[in-house]
Structure formats: C-alpha cells, structure tokens
Computed example of a mutant assay.
Amino acid sequence: MPLLPVLAPGEDFPPSCEALDYPNGLLAAGGELSPQTLLSAYRRGIFPWYQPPDPVLWWTPDPRSVLYPEQLHISRSLAKTLRRNSFTLDADTRFREVMLACAAPRAGQDGTWISDAMVSAYSELHRLGHAHSIEVYRDSELVGGLYGIAIGGAFFGESMFSRASDASKTALVALAWLLRGAGCRLIDCQVESGHLNSLGARTISRLDFEQELAQTVDMHPQSLNWRLPASCGELL
C-alpha cells in the first residue's frame, strides 16, 4: 500500500492522480483547516473528511457525484409539498445551527465527522462570505437545511439534515433555484448516494470533474445574493 503523504501546515496538496484507489480518493493527511487551505482544496476538488482524534484526511474520490442545478428532479410529491407552502425559507441566518444539526447523531451512525474544529473552520469561512447555509422552517422551528462552500460558479455541498419529511429536499430545491438564477454550473455532491441520485445527481470521472471546476471556480455569478422567495411554491 502506498504511503500517504502527511502535509505540514500550509503545504500544497499532491496531484489528484496520487489519490488511493482504496479507500477511494484518499489523497493526504495532516495540514490545517485554515480558510486559505480549505479554499485552495475546494478549488481543486479536494475536501476534508475525518473523525477526531484522527488527523485531518483529504479526499478526492473517483468518480464524483455532481448535480447540475437545471437538472434537479422534483418528484410529484415534493412538488405538492412546495405548492402547499408547508415550509418557510431563509439563507445564511443560522449557519452554525445548521452545521450542528448536521452533526447530530443519526441512526446507525457511530459518531460524526463534523467536529468542533470543523464547525469553527467553516463558521470562519461563513464569516468571510465563502460558506453558506439554507434554512427550512415549519412554524418558526428549524426543521431542515444544508451548508457548503460557494466558489465562482460551483457550490460544494457538505451536509444536510431533516427533522420533517421533505425538509432537506426543500433546502436542496432552494439552493438549486438560487444557483440556477445566478448562472452557476454545478453542485458538488462528493460521493454517490441513492438519495441524491433520486434528485438528479449523477457521477462523472474525477478528470471530467476537475476540468469542469477549472472552467467554473473563476466565474463571477450574476445576482447570487442568497435571498429566497417568501413562498416555497415560487421555487417551481
């Protein structure tokens, strides 16, 4: 098994072709969760995923799961939920709470990768205007949401949560609505899942993903102001 590079703080990442086949996409360990390191990583399609007390692990899996905003699939039942205006929406108002909700234990899950260090690092990215959240409410209670990193015309989705049926799906619909309106090109979903595939995500090779990123991260989206409509029905 090839030795995994251990990065010093501020050290650049190795080329993605050196990522391991198993575990799929593991590229390096170590480094730091500074804003500069995180933004540099995401621009190259690299993201951190680890469980303390292990060191930070950096990943770039192949293939890659992506969702193009204009290809989002809204089922009939989800469309009915949206038209009923079962939820209200907001963005970037409770970022840290959304992260903590995503970090909450789930059935069949042993611990969480969203550590205190991750919450602090991404909250700093939010303060700097790079990380964003979508909040979904029912009767003024936060019942769903998602968060991730926006760079140019790409949004790098990190996690979502749901405390009510269709709440996280509604958050994704709202995100796609925002990105589509601003001319953004893709949502990085990282690793394939049946849930995301049902919403329109698909896999592409790491090479194709990196080529798309090279044309996307330096875009200047128009009117991406992170403001959502008052009515969920307006998302359709």
Rank of each mutant, 00 (worst) to 15 (best):
F95S: 00
F95R: 08
R96E: 06
E97R: 14
L100K: 12
A101Y: 08
A107L: 06
A107G: 09
G108F: 00
D110R: 12
G111M: 03
G111C: 00
W113I: 09
S115C: 06
A117C: 11
A117N: 10
V119F: 00
V119H: 00
V119W: 00
V119T: 14
S120G: 12
A121P: 04
S123P: 12
S123N: 10
L125M: 06
A131S: 11
A131M: 11
S133P: 15
R138I: 06
D139K: 13
S140R: 08
S140L: 15
S140C: 03
E141T: 14
E141G: 11
L142K: 15
G145K: 13
G148K: 05
I149P: 07
I149G: 04
I151N: 03
G153L: 00
F155H: 06
F155I: 01
G157A: 06
M160A: 06
R163K: 09
T170K: 01
A171W: 07
L172A: 07
V173D: 12
A174K: 12
A174V: 05
A176R: 10
L178A: 10
R180G: 14
A182R: 09
I187V: 04
I187A: 10
D188E: 14
C189S: 05
Q190A: 02
E192I: 14
S193Q: 11
S193N: 10
G194P: 12
L196F: 11
L199M: 06
G200P: 05
G200M: 01
R202L: 09
T203L: 11
I204Y: 13
R206Y: 08
R206S: 02
L207I: 08
D208N: 08
D208G: 10
E212R: 14
L213Q: 14
